Simulated assay, not measured.
Amino acid sequence: MELRQLEYFVAVAEEANFTRAAERVHISQSGVSAQIRQLERELGADLIDRSGRAATLTPAGVAALDHARAALASAAAVREAVDEVNGLVRGRLVVGMVTGCTITALFDALAAFHRDHPGVEITLFEDNSDRLIESVRIGATDLALVGSAEQPPEGVDELPIISEGLAAAVPLDHPLAGRERASLAEICEHPLVCLPRGTGIRAVFDQACVAGGVKPDIALEASAPPAIADLATRGLGVAVLSESMAAAHHGRLASVGIDGVDSNAALTLMWRANAGPALKAFVRHAREAFRPVRSAAKARPHRAATARGRRTPVAAGTP
């Protein structure tokens, strides 16, 4: 029995799919299948039921899952303990980034970390905020830069980066273009171009619409803020973005603050609370890299209403 076999078994159990598990552990699907078959032969029982569309656990698999997780955790703890004693940091760091991110401090942190710890393999990928947060929660991702409409899940630490209000971005000849602010109801009288569900800004906007009894007309969706702005520029709808996103297109779009949204948008770093030495080292670099961004955000006045006691992070510069 090998640790990698247990790792692949846990991945299939949690993903309920061999293809997704293979992507998660960065090997081929056939490699995952072969190693789990070998593990099943060694144990003398099938662990995965392959008869349905989803890969589900057999009773033997259910019995084995917690022990497999514990074995992997113990092996990781041994490595981390030795690394701590020897002052070494090595292994693999998986970092997630919300799709369309325009804040480069994360890249600065990655570069500084790589210079100090070249032995650590770094994986960087993009996804929407909901999936990134869940990936951090289950331990598949070490750290992620996200926009979120909720408090972090249990076992996850965070570093708030930016907090700001939402704004509508409209063409310069749009009826709202001369307004500094407009109500949520007025914004929703027009077709809208929004980020998709699963992103922080969209979650804040949807929550405000529900609370205000407003039904928005979502004409188009796009996953990247620049695409949202481009669609609005062409007159295909009013773009719903964060204040800084809308302001970034000054000159071709007018930014209109939205009243009736009680929660602010924010960008947040989230990571597993039980961090190993590599993750701890990267968090130190991230805190330093994001320090100027956080300082600038605190110094910049926001036209939109402040959170009024509610914390709803999403995203200046990101969804």
Score class of each variant (00 low, 15 high):
S183K: 03
L184H: 05
L184S: 00
A185N: 04
E186N: 00
E186A: 07
I187N: 10
C188F: 07
C188T: 03
C188P: 08
H190L: 09
H190I: 01
P191E: 07
L192P: 08
L192H: 08
L192Y: 05
V193A: 07
V193K: 02
C194R: 15
L195E: 10
L195Y: 03
R197N: 06
R197P: 00
G198C: 10
G198L: 15
T199S: 14
T199W: 06
R202N: 13
A203C: 02
A203Y: 04
F205S: 14
F205K: 12
D206A: 14
C209Y: 12
C209P: 12
C209S: 05
G212P: 09
G213D: 12
P216H: 11
P216Y: 04
D217K: 05
L220Q: 12
E221T: 14
E221M: 12
E221V: 12
A222P: 01
S223F: 00
S223M: 06
A224L: 12
P225L: 07
P225G: 02
A227Y: 00
A227S: 03
A227N: 02
I228N: 07
I228W: 01
I228T: 05
A229H: 00
A229V: 09
A229K: 06
L231V: 04
T233N: 03
T233K: 10
T233C: 07
R234S: 06
G235H: 05
L236R: 15
L236V: 07
L236F: 09
G237C: 04
V238Y: 06
S242P: 08
E243C: 05
E243A: 13
E243F: 01
E243T: 14
S244T: 14
M245D: 15
A246Q: 04
A246Y: 04
A247L: 15
A247P: 00
A248F: 07
H249Q: 13
H249R: 13
H250I: 03
G251M: 01
L253S: 04
V256E: 07
G257Q: 09
G260P: 14
V261W: 02
D262M: 11
D262A: 13
D262H: 10
S263C: 11
S263G: 10
N264T: 13
A265F: 04
A265P: 01
A266M: 13
A266T: 13
L267M: 15
T268N: 06
T268P: 03
M270Q: 15
A275S: 11
P277C: 11
A278K: 05
A281R: 02
R284Y: 03
R284Q: 15
R284V: 15
R284W: 01
R284C: 11
A286P: 12
F290W: 05
F290S: 02
F290P: 05
P292M: 11
P292E: 10
